[in-house]
Design a protein around this nucleic acid. Structure first.
Lengths: 197, 197
DNA sequence: ACCTGAACACCGTTCAAGT
DNA sequence: ACCTGAACACCGTTCAAGT
């Protein structure tokens, strides 16, 4: 599967694309180096020519997943553009099975997905906030988005396997509404801190 | 290690306490069933008499970690009590290595840590919000806290091993200030939605 | 430039059987 | 009530060597 380029062997890009395919089809727990090697028709050890370790591969996946997020609604108020950024990121994460967990898992390493934070920071900064405030707000938004979507995706998976704790219809039935609610809370918080200046 | 009760063998409680000790000492990746069995002087298979699987064990750990969070500042405004709840939860998560990840990982299952959400919901509800709003706000708070502290703890671990991406002093140097900032944002957002009614 | 073969040091879980 | 022994079906990673 996925042989590109003119040379004989696989490209780093081949590996990444096959990995993304496995991720989306079978989920993060099934994305093992051995399974990936198998899908490429190659020995597991071959993967270590392309990537130093699994963590680095996952960081690359995280970058590609986040890169798909495109909000771009210029000439709109900073609040609607922050909201648009959040929705676009959520959509990008939802586009791949376990997308949020992959991104969340590599965030702390500083390897993948600096992009998401930067986009949030830029959108907030357009509201006239200083750089430090924009950075902190971006992190808060990011933590909420990653937390929410991870939760959302874990639940999808769990109740497709039917393992959800019995007495728990507790979670609201409308994830999108809950997501919007959370984002609006943070945006409103920012806006009120702006008014107070 | 840790033998309690009158009978011959280990208690479920012994297992949990030993697991918590390994978690705190060596971190989540090193908390394996085999290592845990070893610490108890028992075969790995013996653990499956006490717990159906590892996931259930982790859920129990999550419950214990969260249970330590005690805010209890009665007769204070709902905003300060939400803040106190958040700080107490963060402290509880920080009390064990990888505490946030353990709790975050079992949250979606509905097994462990319903307690954290309920405490937040109660604190918010004291502000006179309807139940649905309180629930959603509680989830937003929870996602932020878990995301923030997971990030915080991952970074501690990573740069103790010296694997942090080189060009990345990007993260602010004061985690507590960033945490407070995020919580204040959400609380302010809630407060402004209250004023608008 | 890209991969094989073989090994090392691990995982979680099941299940019959023991005391 | 609590555990053993043995097995099953896996992991990520290293490293010399091959083409």
């Amino acid at each position: 599967m996925t042989r590109t380029g003119s040379g004989r062997g696989h490209t780093r890009d081949d590996v990444v694309r096959t990995a993304l395919h496995i991720l989306d089809e079978y989920g993060l727990p099934d994305l093992t180096m051995r399974r990936l090697a198998n899908a490429l028709g190659v020995q597991p050890s071959a993967l270590y020519w392309h990537f130093a370790n699994k963590q680095n591969l996952l960081a690359e996946l995280a970058d590609r997943i986040v890169a798909r997020a495109a909000a771009d609604d210029p000439d709109s108020s900073w609040t609607t553009s922050v909201r648009a950024e959040a929705v676009a990121l959520r959509d990008a994460l939802l586009a791949y099975r376990d997308g949020a967990e992959v991104v969340a898992g590599t965030l702390a390493l500083g390897l993948g997905s600096t992009m998401a934070r930067d986009r949030f920071a830029a959108a907030v900064a357009a509201g006239g906030f200083d750089r430090e405030t924009a950075r902190r707000a971006a992190m808060a938004l990011l933590h909420f988005v990653l937390g929410h979507v991870s939760y959302e995706q874990q639940r999808m998976q769990y109740d497709s396997v039917g393992v959800l704790a019995d007495a728990l219809p507790v979670g609201g039935a409308d994830p999108t509404a809950e997501f919007t609610f959370g984002i609006d809370l943070i945006v409103a918080g920012l806006d009120s801190s702006r008014a107070r200046r």
